[in-house]
Nucleic acid binder design. Structure first.
Length: 134
DNA sequence: GCCAACGTTGGC
DNA sequence: GCCAACGTTGGC
């Protein structure tokens, strides 16, 4: 089992929308590093859902329900998408501020490399964020 | 293959 | 709305 974090601007696609839809195709990723991560995702992996720009907080845990397949929105290039479904909403969102202030989370990509939209997490880091949110 | 210029993302 | 950071592109 691997652990991940994906970002979305809530004005584009929010956690609430994911809960309403029941599942979604996570497409539109056009970044080489992010693509490698999408390709590594396995069915059942847990994925933290982060709202960028508005909120700037981790709001829920989603699950990979379909492993990487060709991105239907890509007209050129070998881009991939996965399918995600909501798993559990965090009782209280974990803000970027909290994460930045937490010694155990200093090394996650979210802090070190703000622009990456799909990133891996260590199990300990994942568990820690979930704990902060419960 | 290097590096400058440019575009995009995302925090503030 | 601004700007820093970083990825990508293109000229040499």
């Amino acid at each position: 089992m691997n652990y991940w974090l994906v970002k979305s601007e809530p004005t584009t696609y929010s956690w609430d929308q994911l809960e309403k839809d029941g599942k979604t195709t996570w497409d539109g990723v056009r970044n080489f590093a992010a693509r490698i991560h999408l390709n590594t995702m396995k069915k059942g992996d847990h994925v933290l859902f982060y709202h960028s720009n508005e909120g700037k907080e981790v709001v829920g845990i989603s699950k990979v329900t379909k492993e990487a397949f060709p991105d239907p929105t890509a007209t050129e290039g070998q881009w991939v998408a996965v399918e995600l479904a909501p798993h559990k909403k965090l009782k209280k969102p974990v803000t970027l501020e909290t994460i930045k202030a937490d010694k155990a989370l200093q090394n996650i990509y979210l802090v070190r490399q703000g622009r990456l939209s799909v990133m891996p997490l260590e199990k300990a880091e994942f568990d820690h964020i979930v704990k902060l949110g419960s």
